[in-house]
Nucleic acid binder design. Structure first.
Length: 160
DNA sequence: GCCAACGTTGGC
DNA sequence: GCCAACGTTGGC
């Protein structure tokens, strides 16, 4: 059997706080995905492997949409912000000896010259995706079929 | 800004 | 270990 292909995820972030432009503007264009405080999302972050694709999704904004792509460049390490009393993400229950929260590192790949909004994603067949059925989940695994749908949308948009 | 959905906490 | 209360997310 061939090596397992990298998998793909959708990662939500608020563009006002940390959007894809923030990531692209960083010198090394990489970031630790920290501050996630939800167990399901955490488990997904921990499951990520180097090379996995991350679709960058802008949430809580005028047009929630997939706006670009990242890739995992480092597996999850303990989330330092949970140890920092001054951080809004501080969590007294996460100890250095026994961390609760983890962050993989992502690198910017590209920003699309278009946005794939919810209406577009749903119309293309992603209505059954966790993006819609578990709408509060901020780190969402994608099936191969779902990735194909997104890739097709991207190819179509690039042609026009 | 509203509020539904739903994950998490805490009392029992 | 149940479940009500609470807090947060995130679309609209």
């Amino acid at each position: 059997m061939a090596a397992k292909a990298p998998r793909a995820w959708i990662l939500k972030s608020e563009p006002d706080t940390f959007g894809i432009d923030h990531l692209a503007a960083l010198k090394d264009k990489t970031t630790l995905w920290d501050g996630v405080r939800n167990f399901t999302a955490r488990n997904n972050l921990v499951a990520m492997e180097i090379g996995d694709r991350g679709f960058f999704y802008h949430s809580s904004c005028a047009v929630p949409a997939i706006v670009g792509e990242m890739k995992v460049v480092e597996k999850a390490i303990p989330d330092e912000s949970a140890f920092d009393k001054k951080s809004p993400y501080f969590d007294a229950k996460s100890k250095r000896e026994k961390p609760q929260w983890f962050s993989p590192r992502f690198k910017f790949v590209k920003k699309y010259p278009f946005e794939l909004d919810r209406e577009t994603l749903k119309a293309a067949g992603l209505g059954k995706s966790l993006l819609f059925t578990s709408f509060r989940l901020s780190v969402i695994p994608l099936t191969d079929a779902e990735v194909k749908i997104i890739e097709k949308l991207i190819a179509e948009r690039l042609k026009n």
